[in-house]
């Protein structure tokens, strides 16, 4: 695992174990795609089953949703900048951009929770109708992923500060980067199919 460091490769790919971990994580993301695809399928089956409860037109407000989207998309960009700094071997730049990324992510989670609380106050809970069950579980799963990502990345930032940039910390940072971008892609689908398509229709 620690043996055979190949210094001609980028830092995160230098050890055998790192290469295995990164491939394994890509495959895990494949499983995550199936997971979210199933949730999207569920949503698209149940999306018009309001059971007399509120409809998207009653609930969704584009302003907040657009802000959430901008926050999360920007965080993906700053996450890219963080990996760029990692490639330049600039630990402090990496940590700084990671913190910016997490703050943007936290802003997203905060806004999403606020949005959910508003819905609940308007009487739209996950028990109200099949549409809302699938809405809350799809978005909740994504939001939970972002929250877990924030916690996970915090652990890695602590390790980067304590240990500096090593093949291991670089690999961990690279993997959380993959995860973060993946969640961004999922959000683009949520934004398109859950919000936008329902508001023009």
């Amino acid at each position: 695992m620690s043996a055979n460091v190949n210094t001609s490769l980028p830092l995160e790919y230098q050890t055998e174990q790192s290469r295995l971990n990164i491939l394994g994580f890509w495959i895990f993301l494949g499983a995550e795609i199936v997971l979210f695809a199933t949730l999207f399928a569920t949503y698209s089956v149940l999306k018009a089953r309001y059971a007399g409860g509120p409809t998207p037109n009653d609930l969704f407000e584009i302003k907040g949703i657009l802000t959430e989207t901008i926050l999360l998309l920007t965080s993906s960009f700053t996450c890219g900048l963080a990996i760029f700094e990692m490639r330049r071997n600039n630990r402090n730049g990496l940590v700084a951009w990671m913190i910016v990324t997490l703050l943007l992510g936290a802003g997203f989670v905060f806004m999403e929770i606020t949005e959910f609380i508003n819905y609940v106050h308007e009487g739209a809970t996950m028990q109200t109708s099949a549409f809302l069950s699938s809405f809350f579980v799809l978005l909740g799963t994504h939001g939970l992923h972002v929250s877990m990502g924030i916690g996970w990345a915090t652990m890695i930032i602590i390790q980067l500060i304590r240990r500096g940039l090593t093949p291991t910390t670089a690999r961990k940072t690279f993997i959380i980067g993959l995860y973060w971008h993946f969640l961004d892609v999922v959000w683009i689908f949520i934004f398109t199919f859950v919000y936008l398509a329902r508001m023009v229709g």
Binding site: V34, T38, T42, V45, R49, A51, M126, Q127, A130
Partner: peptide
Amino acid sequence: PIFTVALALMTFDRIFGTHFFTISGGGM
């Protein structure tokens, strides 16, 4: 992962009162 989701939805239906697969509430 499909089963993971299906079982999670079942758990939500049974324990948290959602309407994925129920007759009432628009479930299927």
